[in-house]
Nucleic acid binder design. Structure first.
Lengths: 211, 211
DNA sequence: GACCTAAACGGACTTTACCCCGCTTGATAT
DNA sequence: ATATCAAGCGGGGTAAAGTCCGTTTAGGTC
């Protein structure tokens, strides 16, 4: 027999015990993060607490950053769903410039909500900082294309606007130490979030010649 | 007797042997980078090859990234000097918007020139990505202040433009693996550099309502 | 020149990410 | 039910960053 050519469904090719272990590991990781913060989550510690071998952890997630990427994944999917199928102005139905503004606002909130984990998905190996940034770039590119801002090079502009949106937070350009578990949750961060989002809106409006 | 109140000069408080070792370590590091690339520079290897103890290396540079920061430092100073005292339009004497455009062009070239080392100054600890980005932010802030682009929040805008300028390169958003020693030196990178710089110019002109 | 002290030095030690490979087991075909 | 075997598992092993602390020495004082 041939194997089924179209194995549609979830992440197929994953055995039941493997899937169970993945869930368990993610759950334990969430606990450890809640208790002691992201920095204290080590591969050995996670494996021991989950009563699994270290090798298993690496088999599931490949790398330490992989764990945090997996943790981010679910929320990221939900976010992307809201962007592509949710109500306007974030979702389709509004004009491109309001959608860009709304996207920036939502993305900033998302990144700040997930600040500690998002930061932990970065490490000095993989060339790709986060899958999320790629989605941002493509979405911005698409909306810019609709807005027709009359620029020579939409691709470069999309990249730069992506960096303008995600960079300030991902780079932690001004943030404190990485072991600040709940740092960005103060009132200061709240107002900064608003300022950044407003500034983003101004930026895209000017780029698109609205104003 | 009081010690001299104004110890003006170089990095004082550093003993002669310490200074000699710093120079030697930097020299050996440069050799190792030239021979095998940034990734192969390890603290142990550097110490051994320099015939020094590992503790010494850490005392001098604090962290692995510190070595690369020190390596970047000299060129960075030269760059900053050109910006603040060199001829226009990069240096003072031109209008703020042309200076912003020129700064972007120069900064992109600088970052691509120092791509491998600049990338190595990043690691998952210090909250500050690079001293260079801070200079960029302040310089942009100053020029924006002169351009008076009539926005509500110059601080946020400066941060976002800084990210737009440095982010695409520093994040290596689509670049290849980190062990590509001379990757960004191809003709492809050359044209990309031009495209990015042109796009940057468009961006600042729109933000400042020129055009 | 003898002495004093803060700074620098060295290298063993600890921690942690990541690799390897022999053993075990879930899923499937018969 | 049994056989088969790719996938999964375990945990010891390696490499590299970063820490500690006892020893050495530069550079100034008397």
């Amino acid at each position: 027999m041939n194997p089924p050519l179209v194995p549609l469904g979830k992440p197929h090719g994953e055995r039941a015990d493997a899937a169970r272990n993945r869930e368990h590991l993610l759950e334990v990781a969430r606990e450890m993060i809640a208790e002691h913060g992201v920095e204290k989550v080590t591969m050995d510690g996670l494996a021991e607490r989950a009563c699994l071998g270290k090798g298993t952890v690496f088999r599931r997630f490949g790398t330490r950053a992989g764990i945090f990427r997996a943790l981010l994944d679910a929320d990221d999917r939900a976010f992307q769903h809201d962007v592509m199928r949710g109500p306007p102005p974030l979702g389709p139905g509004a004009g491109p410039v309001p959608r860009l503004a709304a996207y920036g606002r939502a993305r900033i909130a998302f990144l700040l909500d997930h600040f500690a984990i998002a930061r932990a998905t970065l490490d000095r190996n993989g060339p790709v900082p986060a899958g999320g940034a790629e989605f941002t770039r493509i979405h911005i590119w698409m909306l810019l294309g609709q807005a027709r801002p009359d620029v020579a090079d939409l691709d470069s502009l999309s990249i730069q606007l992506t960096a303008a949106l995600e960079g300030p937070i991902l780079l932690g350009m001004w943030m404190r130490e990485p072991d600040d578990t709940i740092q960005p949750a103060g009132p200061l961060a709240d107002s900064w979030q608003t300022l950044l989002a407003d500034s983003w809106q101004t930026l895209v409006e000017r780029v698109c010649h609205v104003t």
